Amino acid sequence: MAKKLKIYFICGAGLGSSLACQMTAEDVLNKHNLDESLDHEAISSTPGLRTDIIVSAENFKPQFEKFDLDPDIRFVFLHNIVDQKEIEEKLVPVIKELE
């Protein structure tokens, strides 16, 4: 069995929208029988994260570019963080590629 991928959902404060996005993504992943390790965090905590994938809203993209992050981390930027269809189209292929 492959190790679970670590996926972080990032928003400004690490509370509201990242948790909503994580819960929506859980539903999508369950539908695809993907059992990964999901967590959520504030953008200010990003530089210390050890993770495979970061999922966040498109408006945070410029902030991530300022951080010196592990080049292996894959980013998934969403226009609508609680849109199951968008999460399915953008996140699921990245997970399948990394597994």
Rank of each mutant, 00 (worst) to 15 (best):
K90W: 05
D72R: 11
C11Y: 13
F75M: 13
E36R: 03
Q63V: 12
D39P: 00
I53K: 02
R50K: 14
S18K: 10
V92L: 04
K61W: 03
F60R: 04
Q22M: 15
Y8M: 10
A2V: 10
S56V: 08
F67V: 03
D83I: 04
L69E: 02
E58V: 12
E26Q: 15
K6A: 10
G48Q: 12
I43W: 04
V94C: 10
A57T: 05
K6Q: 10
D27Q: 14
I10H: 08
I54M: 14
Q84C: 05
D27M: 11
F67R: 07
I87P: 04
D68C: 04
N80G: 05
V55D: 04
Y8Q: 02
G16C: 12
D27R: 13
I87A: 09
K96T: 03
I53N: 06
E97Q: 14
L38W: 06
S37N: 10
I10V: 15
H32N: 07
F64V: 06
L91A: 02
L19E: 12
F9I: 02
G48W: 01
F9T: 05
V55N: 07
D27N: 11
E36C: 10
N33R: 15
I87Y: 02
F75R: 04
P71V: 05
L69Q: 05
V92F: 09
N33K: 15
S17V: 14
D35Y: 14
D39V: 00
L78V: 03
E99F: 11
T51S: 04
T51Y: 03
L19I: 14
N33T: 07
C11I: 11
I81T: 15
V92M: 08
E65H: 01
A13Y: 12
E65L: 11
T24L: 06
T51P: 03
F60Q: 14
T46E: 00
V94H: 07
I7L: 07
N59D: 12
L34W: 04
R74F: 00
S37T: 01
K61M: 15
K96R: 15
V92P: 01
I43G: 04
A13L: 12
V94F: 09
N80V: 12
Q63T: 11
L49C: 05
L78G: 07
S45H: 13
I43Q: 06
H40M: 07
D52E: 08
A42F: 08
I54T: 06
D68P: 00
E99D: 11
I43L: 13
